[in-house]
Computed example of a mutant assay.
Amino acid sequence: MKGNHLISKRSAGLIGLTLAGVLALSACAANETPAASDGDSDSTASASTLSGTISGSGSSAQGSAQEAWQAAFQTANPEVTINYDPAGSGAGRTAFIAGGVAWAGSDSALSDDELAGEFAACAPDSKAIDLPTYISPIAVIFNVEGVDELNLDPTTLASIFNGTITTWNDPAIAALNEGVTLPSATITAVHRSDDSGTTKNFTDYLGKTASDIWTEKAADAFPAAFGGEGAQGTSGVVDAVTNGSNAIGYADASKAGSLGTAKIKVGDEFVGYTAEAAAAVVNDSPLVEGRDANDLAIALDRKTTDPTHYPLVLVSYSIVCQTYADADAAALVKAYIGYITSADGQSAAADAAGSAPLSDDLSAKVAAALETVS
């Protein structure tokens, strides 16, 4: 197929991706959004008319959810292959912009500069849109000798990660943790070494809640000037904290495992992460202003003082073309993203990754935006 040849060539030439079969699609129904059902998988699969292969790349935070989504969607649609590379949000957006993948998973929405550029997989004069897909708290993970519970406020957390506070028994940390014996050990602060939407959300939180301490703008790249220890991907940060000495880091909560997770101060209380608290802050946050009506990027309310909200949260997006250059690609992307943002898909992600399902209102907005994709 001509469209497949062009996109594969861009993938090889522009970003060196070798994703076999990217966008090699046969004709498929434009408006189907099939979902797997434990009790009716055989009949659902036999009824499916979808076939072909598409590939996505991006958010490692979405990794566990993507595995569950791929399995369910491919069971319901046995002639379909879905590939997803959890290479990180920055890498995913780069691949999508270059035309190497059909969609990107990203823990941060497209920037204004990215939206102003061209998208190789999209039809001429068509842009990409951000569709909320996966909501999850970001956990502040720690491994500190003799410490099982830890409270941190935004100022102290920012001071740890900008290198101002360097030992665990610093008075600022001790004041928030009365009765806890904190070691005099040096703090190992671990951050993502790759471009990461998780980092952008983490630094956005620090910049909004501790602006006097955290003076850098939110970005996918952790500020090099602040030092600390870098690690590749979510798994790299978790491994570095797990195997490190008196270490602290940040990661999608689904990957925290048995590590300690700090409570953060919201209003007058210290709040631990929950899927419900993450969903609450998303539901009460407005959309980013000035974007296309179908672009659902969310301006998260990091400064909330409501202790039922957990403001250190990420909304991970599926970034898709409003209009694809290849109609076959559009049909399959539309079906897959339609499934993962459906009630069934969101339930599968919650079971696999502990994420917070999209609210009914947000889910309806996503479905309406998807209807316009062609």
Rank of each mutant, 00 (worst) to 15 (best):
D284P: 04
S235P: 05
T155A: 15
L358F: 08
I135T: 12
V282I: 10
D204E: 12
K127D: 13
L259H: 05
P286K: 07
S258K: 15
G88R: 11
S60V: 09
I165G: 02
V373K: 07
A364I: 03
V140E: 00
A277F: 00
Y317I: 03
I165T: 00
V281A: 05
A91Y: 15
R93M: 08
N201F: 02
G227I: 07
S126E: 10
S355A: 14
D252E: 00
P124S: 12
E216Q: 05
A364E: 14
D125W: 12
A65W: 10
G260Q: 11
V313W: 06
A256T: 10
G58I: 06
R93T: 07
G197S: 10
T234G: 13
E229V: 15
L206S: 01
T53G: 07
H5C: 06
K365A: 11
A247H: 14
A24K: 13
G90C: 00
V22Y: 12
A353M: 08
I187A: 03
K334C: 06
F73R: 08
K2C: 08
A331N: 14
A231G: 05
L50D: 02
D40G: 09
S196L: 04
F96P: 03
H5S: 12
T164S: 13
A128Y: 10
A275W: 03
E145T: 15
N243M: 03
G56C: 12
H309A: 12
